[in-house]
Design a binder for these strands. Structure first.
Length: 489
RNA sequence: GCGGGAGUAGCUCAAUGGUAGAGCGCUGGCCUUCCAAGCCAGUGACGCGGGUUCGAUUCCCGUCUCUCGCUCCA
């Protein structure tokens, strides 16, 4: 189906109606930029994260090179804290990057970074600086704090200031030494993490796409400097293929290589995996994941202190007295490679994905309105989520065709048995067609119905969500049948 | 923060200066041998504070929240 801004409204409405996603704190009027996942949503989002964790981490084979990879590599995971030592964000550059002073002009509604006023021009009189025009009405510089601040300990004291992490990546870098020295990994290897991050986005927008509290799925992949371009290629393509494998196969998905001007100063390669969300203007895309080549920027930052660019070199930023502006840990985060008898600071490839964004893209892609014939053969519109079975919150729904003749008892028995393996729901209310439709909206790939024939030959019907076709299957073979279909998907 | 839009039931909408109706949904029951539309019953709303008024959901003011556009990005 054609998808545009009105589709987005329908997806949002469906999410609310079926219990995927609710506005946070809604009974108090909501709170912008925060969203809660409901009963179906939590299962769905867990499936997204589980698919990522399985495909990237626990399912990874350390012993041989995957297709497209330069060599075999190892993968491990961690789970670091949301609140860290505040110095982490100073050394990483986030403190300076996320903590700006702005002045606004009340006359022309423009906003300038306080440190860039002298390089800006007044929108009404471009020959003048902001504030020089007679009608300019600049505010005092005001703090723009993109990191959530909190206080460690019960006492509110400036020395106790800390921040909620704006990304999970730094928790990996600061644990690099711990992982290397305890888990026997050798370069090249990756450390993965899934977790919440927080940013005071100035403009939360577009449903869960830009939220202030969101969840990331990040890998920091450490390799030898000279191998990094090949690993960058690998991860870029590997991550793109992951989305395709879970259903984002349409032309709404794309991989976009950043131009050199667009890249961060330390990066020698960045690509975005983007999806044309229904809320995007024609030709626009929204970012799902950034895969970037970060060189040795991060580990060096945590050794030496916050780095800035000096020519084509990265050097420690210094204050007036010549001391590092934001000192690093001083710990040696370099790696000794036994094979080559060589010591180096590993280079990093970072595939950084938004779990909520991926989830939203899967929902938008899956949303469909089609029509299927009713009992009289007249086409009737239906709403269906064609979610990949791995992502579907409920895998199977079990129904008795009618609520009598012992059918509910048989159906409940099947429900209990399948439930040991999958998330299964049972429903005996209303007409059978209505129950099918309800499951279609939830993205349930299979509906099993016990009917009159079940009592005669112990078979049930299995109805498929996408085609609505039905297959008669022996009850005792049901689990194997569904397992096979799920595996084949 | 600035500018625009909007707040009536879970959702979509209606009406009214005299405290609100409907459809869908949801719940219970009846009916029903396969794709949301039968029958009965039930559930449930005027964002908030103030003003005008005998009386405000309605008019006025304020406020809050959401939402759209601008600096942010997973």
């Amino acid at each position: 189906m054609q998808k545009d801004a009105s589709t987005m409204e329908k997806v949002v409405a469906l999410c609310k109606r079926r219990g995927f996603i609710f506005p946070s704190s809604e009974i108090y009027g909501g709170i912008g930029g925060f969203w809660d996942y409901g009963p179906l949503g939590v299962e769905f989002k867990r499936n997204v994260k589980e698919a990522w964790w399985r495909d990237m981490v626990v399912g990874h084979d350390d012993t041989q090179a995957p297709a497209g990879a330069p060599t075999a590599y190892e993968m491990v995971g961690i789970d670091s804290t949301i609140v860290t030592h505040p110095q982490v964000w100073k050394a990483s550059g986030h403190f300076d990057l996320f903590y700006d002073l702005f002045v606004d002009c009340k006359t022309c509604k423009a906003r300038f970074r306080a440190d860039q006023v002298k390089d800006s021009q007044c929108p009404r009189k471009p020959s003048k600086l902001p504030g020089e025009h007679g009608e300019c009405a600049l505010t005092d510089p005001r703090e723009f704090n993109l990191m959530f601040k909190t206080y460690i300990g019960a006492l509110i004291d400036p020395t106790a200031e800390a921040y909620l992490r704006p990304e999970t990546a730094q928790g990996i870098f600061v644990n690099f030494k711990n992982v290397v020295s305890t888990s026997r990994v050798k370069v090249p290897f990756g450390i993965a993490q899934i977790g919440k991050s927080f940013r005071n986005e100035i403009t939360p927008r577009n449903f869960t796409f830009r939220s202030r509290e969101f969840e990331q799925m990040e890998i920091e992949f450490f390799c030898a400097p000279e191998e990094s371009p090949a690993w960058y290629q690998y991860w870029r393509d590997r991550r793109m293929a992951w989305y395709v494998s879970l259903g984002l196969a349409s032309d709404r998905l794309r991989l976009r290589e950043h131009s050199p001007e667009e890249r961060a100063h330390y990066s020698c390669g960045t690509a975005d995996i983007e999806y044309a969300f229904p809320f995007c203007a024609e030709g626009d895309y929204g970012e799902l994941e950034g895969v970037s080549h970060r060189s040795d920027f991060d580990l060096r930052s945590h050794m030496e202190g916050k780095l800035i660019k000096d020519g084509d070199q990265l050097v420690v930023e210094r204050d007036a007295s010549g001391a590092p502006k934001h000192p690093g840990s001083g710990k040696d985060l370099s790696y000794f490679d036994e094979a080559s008898q060589r010591k180096f600071v590993p280079h990093v490839i970072e595939p950084s994905a938004g779990a909520d964004r991926a989830a939203l893209a899967f929902l938008c892609e899956a949303y469909d309105e089609d029509s299927i014939p009713d009992e009289n053969g007249v086409p009737q519109e239906r709403v269906v989520l064609h979610l990949h079975p791995r992502l579907a919150p409920v895998k199977v729904a079990v129904f008795p065709l009618v609520k009598k003749d012992g059918q509910p008892e048989v159906a409940a028995e099947i429900y209990r048995s399948l439930k040991q393996r999958w998330n299964v729901s049972y429903d005996e209310k209303g007409s059978i067609g209505k129950r099918y439709r309800r499951q279609d909206e939830s993205g349930t790939p299979f509906c099993v119905t016990v009917d009159h024939q079940t009592a005669e030959d112990q078979t049930v019907t299995v109805r498929e969500r996408d085609t609505t076709t039905q297959t008669r299957v022996a009850a005792r073979e049901l689990e194997a049948y569904i397992a096979e279909r799920l595996r084949a998907a």
